[in-house]
Design a protein around this nucleic acid. Structure first.
Lengths: 339, 339
DNA sequence: CGGCAACTGTACAGCGCTGTAAACGTCCGC
DNA sequence: GCGGACGTTTACAGCGCTGTACAGTTGCCG
C-alpha cells in the first residue's frame, strides 16, 4: 500500500511540506489560490495525514482512557455512552480499560508500562484508595468518578449521594410510607457510595422525626440480583415489617421486586421500591422502577471539561464537582399524597 | 515533566540505544551481564518506552477499533466486553466507535479522515451494505459482525440465525406448543438478522408439519420495549390465538412479558416466551427468560483471530465463520415433555 | 520613493524509537 | 595459528509530521 505522504503532496503542488500542513490545519495565512492548489493536490492524491507521526511531533495523542469496572454493567455502559458522545464532540477518541475491580488493573490505568498512550484518564476506581491514587496519578491528568477516593491531586466528579438518598426517602415519606428499609451491601467502607447513601437515608429519617430502625438496614451477601433477592426474602421471612425499600442500585431493586413478587407482596401497594442509577433496567422491570437518577450527561460533560483543562495545562490542586441528580418516578412507588 | 528517553538509559548504561531496545524487547542475543546492567539503568531511571514513537517506527499501533451501533445496548455491551477481554489477551487495545446506526458514522469507521489510527477494525454494520463496505474496506483490515453485509473482501463472523431460530421453535414444539408467534420488526431486508430468524422459524414449522400462519408473524413499529409490548397487545386484542412467542431479541421479549402480564396471561403456562441474544436482561425479568444464546465468547475470539491474521498480512478473500449458539432455558418456557 | 510592517511561504531540525547493515570480538576446527 | 562462523553490539538512517526561525513579498505611510 503506497501511502501518500505530506512531501508527496508538497511536491505535486510545488510547495513546501509546511504549507501543505498549514492548509490541512486551516492556518489562516495561506493565500487563497495557493490553498486551492494545495487542496487539489491533496484530493487528487487522496492524502490522509498519518496520526502517529502527528502525535510524535506534537506530543498529543488526542485520546483519553476511560477506565471502568465493567463495561457491560448497565450504569457503566450508559455512562460510557455519554462520555463517548461528549468526547467525540471535543475531538477526543476514547480507549476503554476494564478493570473488573482488580487492583492491578486499576494501577495499570494510572501507571502503564508504556507511556504516551493517552493524554488523560477518566477513572472510576473501586479498589484503589486515595493515597495510592495520589502517589501514582502525577503521571497523567486524571479525573475520578465515584465516591471511593478523592485525593487532592486529581479532579473528582460525583453526585451528592447523601442528598440523593435523602430525596429518595423524602419521596417515600411523602407518599405515606414509614417503615422504609435500606437494601445494600454494607460491608464496605463508610466512605464508599453505599455508605453515603445509607447516611442520607438515616439523616432524612431523623430529620423527619423517625428513629432509624437498624433491623431495616439489610445487608446483601454479593452483587448479584439473586443475592439481593435472597436478602430481602430473608428479611420477609424473619418477620421484619416494612412498607418501602430504598435500594443501593437498580440491580438490587430488581432483586427486591423478585423477592416481593414471590412473597405475594404487591408493588407499590404493599411495598414501594426505589432503585438507584436510573439505568435502562428501571424501564424494563414490571412494575417499572422509580430510581434515583444521577445526571449522567452532566457527569460526562463535567468530567471531560475538567480533564480537558488539565490536558491543556491546568495544574492546580484537585477540584471537586457535584453534578445534579433527580428521581425518575415510575410505577414502583405510589403517587405522592398531595397537600 | 522530564521524560526519560531511550538514549538517556543507553548513556547511563554505557551502551547503544539499540541494545537498550533489545533488552526491552527481550531480544535473545544480549549477554546476561549486559542485560542486567541495562535493566538496572532502566529501573533506576524509571524509563517507559514512548508508544507513539514506537508506532511511528514500526508502523503498527497495537490498537483496533470496535464499531458498534450502541455501546449501552445489552447485547453490544456484553459482546464488547468479550471482545475487550480477548483483545487484552492478544495485547491489543480497543478504541470504541459508536455509530448509532448512522451511515456517516459507519463510513467513517472504514475510511477515516486520518490514517494510521488503528491496525484493524471489528465492525457491526447496520446501514452500510455489502457494496459500499467492499468499496471502502481495502483501507484497513476489517472483520464484520452481524448479518447485514457480507462482502467478499472482508471477513465475517456470525451465528447461524436460521438454525438458531429453528432450534427455538423446536424447543417450543417439544414442549407441546403449536400456535407459535414470531415477534419482530420485519420491515427490514430479508437478509438482515430478523429476516433470517423469521426464515428459520418458518422452516422449522414446516419441517414439523405445521403450516405457518401469517397472522402469527407480528410486526413491531420500532425498537423499544413499549413498541414490542404494544405490538403483542394489539395481537391479543385482535383475538389472535397463540401459545408461544419467539422474539427477535430479549428486549422485545421483555415487552412481550409486559403485554402478557397486562392481559392476564400466565407465562409460561398460557404462553411461552423465547428471547434472543441471552443478555443479562434474560435473568432480570420475571419470569426469567429462555433465550437463544449466541456464543459471544466464541464470536469475540473468532473475530479477533481473523483480524489478527489480516493484520499480520493475510490478504486472501473474505472468510466466513459461523460460531455456535445454544438456548439458555429459563422460566419463560415450560419444561420439555419427555418421551 | 525609502522604509517598516504585515503577510506568505520555506528550510530544517527534531519528536523517540526501530530495522538494517555492518563492525567487532570470540571461539572453533582443521 | 588462521579463516570462517557465529554471537553480540553499534551506528545511523529513517518513520511522517510540526514548530521555529527566517527569508521573500507586498503594501502602505510619511
Amino acid at each position: 500500500m503506497p501511502r501518500v505522504r505530506l512531501v508527496d503532496v508538497a511536491e505535486r503542488a510545488g510547495v513546501s511540506m509546511k504549507t501543505v500542513s498549514n492548509v490541512i490545519h486551516d492556518y489562516p495565512h495561506v493565500a487563497p489560490p495557493l490553498r486551492a492548489r494545495v487542496q487539489a493536490a491533496i484530493d487528487e492524491l487522496g492524502y490522509r495525514p498519518n496520526l502517529t507521526a502527528r502525535r510524535l511531533a506534537t506530543g498529543r495523542t488526542g485520546m483519553i482512557a476511560l477506565a471502568m469496572p465493567e463495561i457491560d454493567h448497565p450504569y457503566f455502559s450508559e455512562l460510557s455512552r455519554s462520555i463517548a458522545e461528549e468526547a467525540k464532540g471535543l475531538g477526543l477518541r476514547v480507549i476503554f480499560e476494564q478493570t473488573l475491580g482488580e487492583a492491578d488493573a486499576e494501577r495499570a490505568v494510572l501507571h502503564d508500562r508504556e507511556a504516551g498512550l493517552v493524554d488523560g484518564v477518566i477513572f472510576h476506581p473501586v479498589q484503589m484508595g486515595t493515597m495510592e491514587i495520589a502517589r501514582l496519578a502525577p503521571d497523567v491528568p486524571v479525573v475520578l468518578l465515584g465516591e471511593s477516593a478523592m485525593p487532592v491531586t486529581s479532579d473528582h466528579v460525583m453526585i451528592d449521594n447523601v442528598a440523593a438518598a435523602a430525596d429518595g426517602v423524602a419521596l417515600l415519606l411523602q407518599s405515606g410510607r414509614r417503615r422504609i428499609a435500606f437494601l445494600g451491601t454494607v460491608r464496605d467502607d463508610i466512605t464508599g457510595s453505599t455508605g453515603q447513601r445509607l447516611l442520607g437515608y438515616q439523616e432524612q429519617l431523623i430529620a423527619s422525626g423517625i428513629t432509624p430502625d437498624p433491623t431495616l438496614v439489610l445487608p446483601v451477601a454479593g452483587f448479584s440480583i439473586e443475592d439481593s433477592r435472597d436478602a430481602l426474602t430473608q428479611a420477609i421471612e424473619s418477620g421484619i415489617h416494612f412498607d418501602a425499600v430504598l435500594c443501593r442500585d437498580d440491580k438490587f431493586a430488581i432483586g427486591a421486586l423478585k423477592s416481593l413478587a414471590a412473597a405475594g407482596r404487591s408493588v407499590p401497594d404493599d411495598v414501594a421500591v426505589v432503585g438507584w442509577d436510573d439505568t435502562h433496567l428501571a424501564g424494563y422491570s414490571s412494575p417499572t422502577l422509580t430510581s434515583v437518577a444521577p445526571d449522567k450527561r452532566a457527569l460526562a460533560r463535567t468530567a471531560l471539561g475538567l480533564l480537558k483543562e488539565r490536558i491543556e495545562g491546568f495544574a492546580g490542586i484537585g477540584r471537586h464537582r457535584v453534578v445534579p441528580h433527580s428521581i425518575s418516578v415510575r410505577e414502583s412507588t405510589p403517587p405522592v399524597e398531595t397537600g
